[in-house]
Design a protein around this nucleic acid. Sequence first.
DNA 1: TTAACTGCAAACCCTTTGCACGGTG
DNA 2: CACCGTGCAAAGGGTTTGCAGTTAA
Lengths: 127, 127
Amino acid sequence: MQRSTHQRRAIYRVLEEADRPLSPQEVLEHARGEVPNLGIATVYRAVKAMTEAGDLTSVQLPGEAPRYEFAGKHHHHHFRCLKCNRVFEIDGCPGGLAAMLPEGFQLERHDLVLYGACSECTNGSGV
Amino acid sequence: MQRSTHQRRAIYRVLEEADRPLSPQEVLEHARGEVPNLGIATVYRAVKAMTEAGDLTSVQLPGEAPRYEFAGKHHHHHFRCLKCNRVFEIDGCPGGLAAMLPEGFQLERHDLVLYGACSECTNGSGV
DNA sequence: TTAACTGCAAACCCTTTGCACGGTG
DNA sequence: CACCGTGCAAAGGGTTTGCAGTTAA
């Protein structure tokens, strides 16, 4: 079993407090508030271990490095802001995807990623 | 403007003859049939230039290296068969995606990837 | 002719690994 | 006390860049 160390608790807490998937680099920057000497290698090792343990899942957007969020959430998708590059969770899910498939194809799962501007980056249109 | 070189014509032809998106490495391997000393750097530079010129588009599936295909196709998505790993184009597109966004978010574009079994791999269920 | 293109190899970036020390159980 | 976990730094793998020679226009 895994040990509960100062570093891992900090990493866990950072992911817990963020309401969005974080990259290892983002985790490092946030967690250094608690553990100043935290190394990036430790973050990589921790998220890998937590993912294998089932506590985290990796969120992989096309062409981008993996981000991590807590596992066990309800089915959801992601939105990436093209200005600040942060990734947000989106609760909705379009229906009728199976109807898009050709004859004989069977749908098992799907990934949907929306791109645009988040509310903070949408200046001048209502924030 | 770009020059028409032996290497670029070979790279172009390889992508033209393939009926699926190719990775730079795959392009290199195929194109070396015509240009034995072709370097990987040249492939990267060529696909980058052709993409910027609008001749190619990159196809990026989550967690996978980018592949390239000819641009100018109609808006479409991709289906990857979990058994044979081939990627197919899907013509349909779900609507109402903007409605899934939180207040103040603006939708610009989206990526949808469907996973499952293609008709050839759906053995025992009607093929 | 001349400036873009190419091949090679080194540089880069992100991620992983090796090692000796520190801390958990 | 035994060993896992950590930080540092070096190694890896894939992509990009610098340079001098080549080639298209």
